[in-house]
């Protein structure tokens, strides 16, 4: 399918606040994004003109923010609302190989719905992981460096060379990716074997390093993961905030080229143009 025909659903509810940048990232690359409220998909409290069907879109984006005020746990309420009304549509969407991107709060939502890490099946009934409170117990808003560790499965990073370090900023209070403590090591190994690890927080030398390079204390410095098929991807840092070079903190010293986040959106649109 042509990129210019690719419809992108940027899904929001109350408290979502990164939908504009996410929407524009796809718009600038020639796709057809649309900001859609969850109620438009479930058909509640909306007119017939406003109703939308998830099946009409090729890409789904869960943008960052503080959906439902981060009550209960970050992303938990949005996830509960998706699970209650859209479970089947969601599973169909993923099964059809259509890409789903969760950024920051969106990643938290994907984990809470069980769409990530999804080591068995497409959507697990209970979460297999959690994005827990940062080790610092604070909101961490800072530039972070991510090394791409994915070997090729992830549809969102095909335009980024393996081991390249991208500067993509983080801004979250609950970004520490954790698995059940007693099985954490074997789960991470399984994720690596399945090629589900995508980005890790590193220092400028590309080594796994502690705070502040890793802003949250995440297990093995993991910043982003995908499902086994590579079409569902979640990450805590914000690629949409560095679409242009001039939003990088060092842009006056390195003014040339695109922003490091642009490649994420280019990769997924490339996937859409070749696979859908």
């Amino acid at each position: 399918m042509k990129v210019s025909d690719a419809r992108v659903c940027v899904l929001r509810i109350e408290g979502t606040n990164c939908e504009e940048e996410s929407y524009l990232s796809f718009k600038r690359l020639g796709a057809k994004p649309e900001k859609v409220h969850l109620k438009q998909l479930t058909g509640t409290d909306v007119t017939s003109d406003e109703k939308r069907s998830l099946a009409d879109y090729q890409v789904l984006v869960l943008p960052g923010g503080f959906s439902s005020g981060d009550y209960v746990r970050a992303g938990a309420i949005f996830a509960a609302r998706i699970k209650s009304r859209l479970s089947r549509d969601m599973v169909e969407f993923v099964r059809a190989g259509k890409p789903v991107l969760g950024i920051c709060n969106g990643f938290q939502i994907l984990v809470e719905t069980g769409l990530l890490p999804a080591m068995s099946g497409i959507m697990t009934e209970v979460p297999e992981a959690v994005l827990s409170t940062n080790d610092s117990a604070r909101f961490e808003c800072r530039p972070t460096l991510l090394r791409k560790v994915n070997r090729g499965s992830c549809a969102f990073t095909t335009k980024i060379p393996r081991n390249k370090i991208s500067a993509i900023p983080s801004a979250h209070a609950e970004g520490k990716l954790m698995f059940p403590v007693d099985r954490s090591k074997s789960i991470v190994k399984e994720l690596a074997d399945n090629d589900q690890l995508v980005f890790k927080y590193v220092n400028p030398e590309g080594e796994l390093a502690g705070y502040p390079w890793c802003p949250n204390g995440s297990t093995e410095n993991i910043a982003g993961i995908c499902n086994r098929e590579g079409n569902v991807f979640g990450l805590m840092p914000h690629p949409e905030r560095v679409f242009f070079r001039y939003t990088h903190p060092d842009w006056t010293r390195n003014p040339e080229g695109a922003g490091d986040g642009k490649a994420v959106f280019e990769s997924v649109l490339d996937y859409v143009s070749k696979k859908l």
Partner: peptide, 10 residues
Amino acid sequence: CRKLLANPVI
């Protein structure tokens, strides 16, 4: 608790 209030991982 199972569906919303707790995350069984932690």
